[in-house]
């Protein structure tokens, strides 16, 4: 976070936010209030005690805010001055604007929503004076995520149409969803695949279609998804170090040196070497290197055969 605020400032901010929140939620429990403000109930009670001492100059019963919370339910009276929530900060506005981008993206065909989002975005960006300098998108269709979330909640199985990048093939499978996870900017679904009878990890942006199966076949206990052991390969990088580092998931990518990489799929290695456009070469295992050479020759032959003369 940029320039963390000192404790009394954060405290004041919370006190000022508490008054309008309680005013709009008279009778809320201390426990719920603590949850909303992300602090302990002890802290909330300390906050309420402090607020109880606050009010207009004079500080008699007439001017002080009137809080009651001994019963475990919080209500506030005589707090007209602070009753309205504070104006949104620039950062709060930007966070909402970016969020609204995703709402717009997730309902492309709902004109009612699109109109409301456009209206709200315009008001917000006018308030902050930031124009259209921020834009968010997400490669995952929002309906796919919301279906997964609801199936996780209701413990239902899913039928998915999935595009596997390594095999470049589309398959249909029935899965029991277990957990949504975000790793390094990518959203994954951990699931038990009934077709493979094994735990599998799916990237949300590769799920093309999804239907909820109301009939759940059997319960699967959640457990960590074990990867295959994989095998070690040796590669050498000649150029475009940053791209190769990202492609092969390396800590570092020194040029012209043997680098050991861990791989789980021969398909993935072969495709990755080709897609490196000769910036990287596979040294070992040698049978895999030979396969790459043969494949390259095969494609070359096709180009020769189809020479446009």
């Amino acid at each position: 976070m940029p320039h963390a605020k000192p404790a009394p400032i954060i405290h004041t901010e919370r006190l000022l936010a508490l008054v309008p929140y309680i005013s709009a939620h008279q009778g809320i429990t201390v426990k719920n209030l603590a949850q909303v403000f992300n602090v302990t109930t002890t802290q909330i009670i300390a906050d309420l005690t402090t607020l109880w001492m606050c009010g207009l100059p004079g500080y008699t019963a007439l001017e002080l805010m009137d809080l009651s919370f001994e019963s475990g339910f919080v209500s506030i009276r005589n707090a007209p001055t602070l009753k309205s929530p504070r104006t949104l900060s620039k950062e709060e506005i930007i966070s909402l604007l970016l969020g609204l981008d995703l709402v717009r993206e997730s309902s492309p065909n709902n004109s009612e929503i699109l109109n409301s989002v456009a209206k709200l975005s315009q008001r917000l960006s006018q308030k902050a004076g930031v124009g259209a300098r921020f834009r968010a998108t997400n490669p995952v269709a929002s309906t796919i995520r919301s279906d997964i979330e609801s199936s996780l909640l209701k413990q239902e199985n899913l039928k998915i149409t999935y595009h596997s990048l390594y095999n470049d093939s589309v398959s249909e499978r029935e899965i029991t969803p277990l957990e949504l996870r975000i790793d390094n900017g990518v959203e994954y679904l951990f699931a038990y695949c009934l077709d493979a009878s094994a735990f599998r990890v799916f990237r949300l942006d590769r799920i093309q279609k999804l239907t909820i199966k109301a009939d759940r076949l059997k319960a699967v206990k959640s457990q960590p998804v074990l990867m295959d052991q994989g095998f070690t390969s040796q590669i050498c990088i000649y150029s475009r170090a940053r791209l190769m580092k990202e492609r092969f998931g390396l800590e570092n990518a020194p040029l012209n040196q043997r680098i050991a990489i861990q791989a789980f799929s021969r398909q993935w290695i072969i495709r990755s070497i080709f897609a490196s456009s000769a910036s990287a070469v596979l040294l070992e295992p040698s049978d895999l290197a030979r396969e790459i050479a043969q494949k390259a020759q095969l494609i070359l032959d096709r180009y020769q055969a189809h020479s446009p003369a």
């Binding site: 969020g99 995703l102 709402v103 997730s106 929002s142 995520r145 919301s146 900017g185 959203e187």
Partner: peptide, 8 residues
């Protein structure tokens, strides 16, 4: 409608 937009 049920929406679950997610910022990543």
């Amino acid at each position: 409608p049920m929406l679950a937009p997610r910022m990543v």
